[in-house]
């Protein structure tokens, strides 16, 4: 779903306006986004009800939504319900793992971009470890940290690490020599060049790295929770429900995961991307 905004040159929107517009686009949908989904849901509903598909393996959406409603209830209200608890735990783990990676790995990536020796040391290590799927780490990490939040958070961190490091370093290295020359000629010290040229210049790549990191981390999180969720988390909820053939809960969980992933990617990060990359009209500055 894309909306082409035609604005006069020189009328940039503030960050809060971008967030509002982004959220509005997502919540209000836009017929182009919502209609195909509604059609699919309608076909699904009919197929399940008429027995075209096995209603246990593929329950109708109405049943799924009803189940979701049930999961969102509790004796003490919505916010204490089981589903909300699972959601909170998953989001907390994501925030912790990604947050840690965001701080540490952005710094490392930027340093790698700036300093050739640091790059030469870390690049081979990153290149070798990067292709390993995060879930492959789970058995090892369980041995280190047990079936706990720490395990999930660690796996999230591992997943978020690489896109952030790689893109931050690439962003810095992608800045053309002539931009640095021009700044130096105008009187910029090394420190000023870093903060006034390298950092803003690398920003589009850095943001792209973070968007990728969150997307991948969310997926890895769900998988890790299936293996080591220890009773809590959306991934655990889905996995556990299968032991009772509670497919309605499985699908409810999948839908919640999908919606949350969408909100995070489109609602939080895309406005940020629009505020920087698209406003500056560039992916690279070179």
């Amino acid at each position: 779903m894309s909306e082409i905004q035609i604005r006069r040159a020189g009328e940039p929107r503030s960050l809060s306006a971008e967030f509002a517009a982004g959220f509005g686009q997502k919540v209000l949908g836009g017929r182009r986004f919502v209609s195909p989904i509604l059609i699919v849901l309608a076909v699904w509903e009919l197929s399940a009800r008429t027995g075209l598909v096995n209603a246990v393996l593929l329950p109708p959406p109405s049943a799924i939504f009803r189940n979701m409603g049930r999961l969102f209830q509790s004796d003490t209200g919505f916010w204490n319900s089981l589903l909300v608890e699972h959601i909170e735990v998953s989001l907390m783990r994501l925030l912790a793992g990604y947050g840690l990676a965001a701080v540490l790995c952005t710094v490392l990536g930027l340093l790698m971009g700036v300093n050739r020796r640091i790059y030469a040391f870390f690049d081979p290590i990153v290149t070798v470890i990067m292709p390993i799927p995060s879930l492959a780490w789970v058995p090892i990490v369980i041995l280190w940290l047990g079936m706990s939040n720490a395990t999930i958070i660690f796996v999230v961190f591992l997943t978020a690490m690489f896109p952030i490091i790689y893109n931050s370093a690439a962003g810095v290295r992608g800045i053309s020599k002539k931009h640095l020359w021009a700044a130096e000629l105008m009187g910029a010290s090394r420190r000023k060049i870093f903060f006034k040229v390298l950092l803003p210049g690398a920003m589009p790549h850095v943001i792209t790295g973070h968007i990728l990191a969150v997307s991948l981390a969310w997926r890895a999180l769900v998988g890790a929770e299936m293996l080591a969720g220890a009773g809590l988390g959306l991934g655990y909820m889905i996995f556990d429900a299968r032991t009772f053939m509670d497919t309605e809960t499985v699908y409810a969980g999948i839908m919640v995961i999908a919606v949350l992933g969408l909100v995070i990617e489109k609602g939080v990060f895309r406005p940020l991307q629009r505020f920087t990359i698209e406003r500056w009209g560039t992916v690279r500055t070179g």
Binding site: G10, S176, K178, H179, W181, A182, E184, L185, M186, G187, V197, P200, G201, M203, T276, W280, G281, T282, T285
Partner: peptide, 21 residues
């Protein structure tokens, strides 16, 4: 000895900073 602001430069490819107005 090195670049100093007693000189100004204009490149063929403009080399403007895209994040600034």
């Amino acid at each position: 000895d090195r670049p100093r602001p007693d000189r100004g430069i204009v490149f063929q490819e403009y080399v403007l900073f895209p994040w600034l107005t």
